[in-house]
Write a protein that binds this DNA or RNA. Structure first.
Length: 466
RNA sequence: UCCUCCAUAGCUCAAUGGUAGAGCGAUCGGCUGUUAACCGAUAGGUUCCAGGUUCGAGCCCUGGUGGAGGAGCCA
């Protein structure tokens, strides 16, 4: 008698008539005076639970089966058989039911068999994976993460684990979390009274990383095609449905490549990941389409099949000006595109995904390559209907003299970036890359409205419970 | 950080300044190869906290705390 998952039981992978064991948690139990109880048992292996039919003739029927309330853990052995009822093709005709862990107070068990608000479920983050929604999010997140690694692996990329703890100053990417073992109540001081970080664990100030990009560039200029995929931290006090203090970022970097190659990579990447999730998590996506966002499947299918348009920033500004649309912030050359601008471009003008390229140099980061016109940099944003900006990237400045000028212009201390400058001194090549926040991808895939539901344990200002 | 809205039973929400209610969930019973079943009954309340106004505050005022949406910043 083999132990099988609900997925194996329901998918036909195990032939009907087999003696099997299933184990999981009770979603609902319905008692029938016909002489049995119906237990909807979920184990997370797929969206649907497996129905266990427990006959009243079981010796522990009154003592255990009738106490298997919502949330209890159960092992059931029996025959996988065609269901006599409608609603499922197969079910377990149980010959033995073991109540492994009961719910000691059913009244206060938070996950009741009824709809809950996502806000409430955030307060019980340790139990919310037992719900339809968060089980499905977890499976989609896994499928997407696997697809990310598979895509890069198949394209010959090397996964580089850039450091979590970094001594690099924020290059304008945001506030950083300090990492220190100093005694906060008794800080060592220098003669001038400043905190003496030379006595800290690393002998200097250190922080949690805000990006692995600069580190991964070094590996790019050796291994040619590399990427990072790991946790990233921002200490910004931003309380929105789109920001987390701890999130996962994906940052590929390619050598001997320009911005056009970067945009091509971004397009292939998104299509690969979306196609994989469409193929692998059809059950979960169907649920999200019913529950969250009706277009969640159709918009993914459309994005996979539509070639991404490419327009210049300057062209985008002209399109916005000619649109006749009133924007809260008028589109002007030199200003960054607002959310309302991005949505107009992708949802109404292009009516599909679009890559906007070559932004004014003053509004972009110091490491982005200065174009020959001297006023724009080789930066790109990928915009998609229903979400707006999903990827940001650039060709990097590979010329040391230009990089030094840009660092000076942005007021960046060159001493902290000697190793980064070295990459331009020893065998520099044109290279490019992009970054995207993994949770924003999950929000889009699942049709969620708050990024706090796209990560198991969200960290935001004021909250690090669980 | 700024703006707006919100906070009442385990959950979702009602309640003109005058006796705090319903649905769902839970418990018990009934019924049924059931489908987040159905029918009946029962239990369940510091109305977020601290002040204030009033004969009387869930409701009005002040200050907190917490939540949501939007903005800015960004991924």
């Amino acid at each position: 008698m083999s132990i099988i998952s609900a997925k194996a039981a329901l998918s036909g992978a195990v032939p009907a008539g087999s003696e099997v064991t299933v184990q999981g948690w009770v979603r609902t139990r319905r008692d029938s005076k016909a002489g049995c109880s119906f237990i909807a048992l979920h184990d997370g292996s797929c969206f649907d639970p497996i129905q266990v039919v427990a006959p009243a003739t079981l010796p522990n029927y009154e003592s255990d089966v009738r106490r298997a309330t919502t949330g209890a853990s159960v092992i059931a052995r029996g025959v996988l058989a065609p269901s006599q009822g409608k609603g499922q093709a197969l079910e377990i005709q149980a010959t033995e039911v073991v109540l492994v862990g009961e719910v000691d107070d059913p009244e206060t068990y938070p996950i009741q068999p009824k709809p809950h608000t996502l806000e409430f479920l955030r307060e019980v983050a340790h139990l919310r994976p037992r719900t339809n929604t968060f089980g499905a999010v977890a499976r989609v997140r896994h499928a997407a993460a696997q697809a990310v690694h598979r895509f890069f692996h198949e394209e010959g990329f090397v996964w580089v684990n850039t450091p979590i703890i970094t001594a690099s100053d924020a290059e304008g990417a945001g506030q950083m979390f300090r990492v220190s073992t100093l005694d906060l109540a008794n800080l060592p001081r220098t003669e001038s009274g400043a905190v003496d970080f030379s006595r800290d664990f690393f002998g200097r100030e250190t922080f949690l990383t805000v990006s692995g990009q600069l580190n991964v560039e070094a590996y790019c200029l050796a291994l040619s095609r590399v990427y990072t995929f790991g946790p990233t931290f921002r200490a910004e006090n931003s309380n929105t449905s789109r920001h987390l203090a701890e999130f996962w970022m994906i940052e590929p970097e390619i050598a001997f490549a320009d911005l056009a190659a970067d945009a091509d990579l971004a397009e292939r990447f998104l299509k690969y990941v979306f196609r994989a999730v469409l193929n692998e998590r059809e059950d979960d996506l169907r649920f999200f389409a019913e529950r969250n966002e009706p277009t969640v499947v159709s918009r993914l299918e459309q994005l996979v099949e539509t070639p991404f348009a490419r327009i210049d920033y300057a062209e985008a500004i002209e399109i916005l000006k000619r649109s006749g649309r009133h924007f809260e912030f008028p589109a002007e050359w030199g200003a960054d595109l607002q959310t309302e601008h991005e949505r107009y471009l992708t949802e109404e003008h292009v009516k599909g995904p679009v890559v906007v390229m070559n932004y004014p140099e003053a509004i972009k980061a110091f490491y982005m390559r200065l174009n020959d016109d001297g006023r724009t940099v080789a930066a790109m944003d990928v915009l998609a209907p229903g979400i707006g900006e999903i990827i940001g990237g650039s060709q990097r400045e590979e010329r040391l003299d230009v990089l030094d000028r840009r660092m000076a212009q942005f007021g960046i201390e060159p001493d902290h970036y000697q190793w980064y400058r070295d990459l331009r001194r020893y065998g520099s090549v044109p290279h490019a890359g992009f970054g995207l926040g993994f949770e924003r991808l999950i929000v889009y895939l699942c049709g969620l409205s708050n990024i706090r539901d796209a990560i198991p344990y969200p960290r935001v200002p004021g909250h690090a419970e669980f």
